[in-house]
Simulated scan of single mutants.
Amino acid sequence: MTDTGQPTRPSAIAGYGDWPAYVQQHARYHAATAAAQELADALGVPGALPSPDVTVHWEETHDGVTTSQLGWQLGFGPRSTGWLIRPAGASGPVPGILALHCHGGNKFGGADRLVELPESHPSAENARAGHYDGRALATDLARAGFAVLAHDTFGWGSRRFDLSVPPRRTAAALEARQAQWRQDGVVPSGADVYNAAAGFHEETLARTAGLLGTSLAGMVAHDDLAALEILAALPDVDQERLGCIGFSGGGGRSLALAVLSHRIKSYVVTCMMTTFQALLPAFLDAHSWLLQTPGLWRLGDWPELTARAGASRLLVQYALADQLFPEDGMRNAHRILESLHSPESYTGSFWPGGHIFTAGMQREAIDFLSASLGANDLNTLPPFSYQGPCS
């Protein structure tokens, strides 16, 4: 209770009480080019601190790869967890990949959905089954000859907000969801409850970020840039052969990172490419704040942002029955990309099916990154169930 006898209002950013001060003190990320700087300013990416100290929590070698759980503390919020997966026994510097997890409506977990772990939380297993065709993308990339870092980004997994006492708007919406669960006879898991709360809370995060002069996408990019610096600093990683890959919201992160950092030489965007016009009016509510940063369209259409990247190779994978994008928006984006890039620098592939990163799409993406960045022979990979792209 307050001195006036009113109930104490819970924090809307619990676990991140130091976030506003950090943004105020590190107000601007400095990109290498004017074109990249415009995107950084539009997203409100805060300036990054020097690479943080990284702690290795555990390490094990199994089935051809060595997996290490890492941790580091950025300048605000909870500690970050990441997993470094690399080919066991590799000699000499190998190319590096930042594997960027999707949104997926699952903020309880983060990058653990991309990694084969001794023990996986059910939320990670469900995300992998529902969005990645049951495969652990980061581990498969390591088996193909890459050093792969998969990290929890701002708002996900180890970097999630504390919603144990949700702020009032979130609490009211969550109460309605829980009432529906009770009526339906559903007993939600702790992850289910958190993810429901986090879905409602994202509106509060977007408002808070806007007040601070940043955005959800800008804060996520901040964490991604820090992770990229950690990857680049590893002694067995070739700094001149770095790439990134992401599905859905991770695909948006991949595009943004390729623009913001000159380190990225090749990248993959899967199921996250359309024109902004195609989202109007029916598809606006199909997407999170990761895509819909206020004012972003002023810089150009979504596919046009790729022209701001210094990366030399880009693969975009489209799913023709994607529930989040109309087909005409994807095909128009493809035409724009073909007009902006040479056939040697841009590859677009259309796949049957919905909003899923299928095993066949993953194999194509790994092949593409291997050819672009010079990884090892892909014959080291286990068999994939493969259905090729369509026209």
Rank of each mutant, 00 (worst) to 15 (best):
S68T: 13
D238A: 14
R9H: 04
I366H: 01
I336V: 15
P235Q: 05
S254D: 11
A35N: 08
G89W: 10
P20W: 12
K107F: 09
T270V: 12
A365G: 13
A150E: 11
Q180S: 12
L279K: 04
L205F: 09
L43E: 06
T274A: 07
A124K: 01
P78L: 15
D18F: 06
W289Q: 08
L320W: 02
H355A: 13
A99C: 15
P122N: 06
S91G: 12
T293L: 10
A365T: 13
S215A: 06
H334F: 08
R168V: 00
R363T: 00
R169Q: 11
L211W: 03
S391G: 11
L305T: 07
Y16S: 02
N106F: 00
P46I: 02
A12S: 14
E125Y: 00
D152G: 05
L231E: 11
E125K: 03
S345C: 10
T358Q: 13
L225R: 09
L299G: 09
P352W: 00
L205R: 06
Y16P: 02
P50S: 07
L212G: 02
G5F: 07
E116Y: 00
L98E: 05
H262T: 07
L234P: 04
G360K: 02
S370P: 10
T275H: 07
A359C: 06
V220H: 14
L280C: 03
G348F: 02
L205Y: 01
A176Q: 15
P7Y: 03
A150T: 03
S254H: 08
L291N: 03
R308N: 09
T204I: 12
E59R: 07
Q180V: 14
L337G: 05
D238S: 12
Y16V: 00
S345N: 12
V148R: 11
G246C: 13
I245R: 05
R207P: 00
P122H: 12
H222T: 10
V54K: 01
T66E: 11
C102L: 13
L39T: 03
V316H: 08
D322E: 03
V186H: 14
F146R: 02
L70C: 06
P382G: 14
L174R: 01
S248Y: 01
V165K: 15
L163T: 02
A179C: 07
G145F: 02
S123R: 07
P93D: 01
Q37A: 05
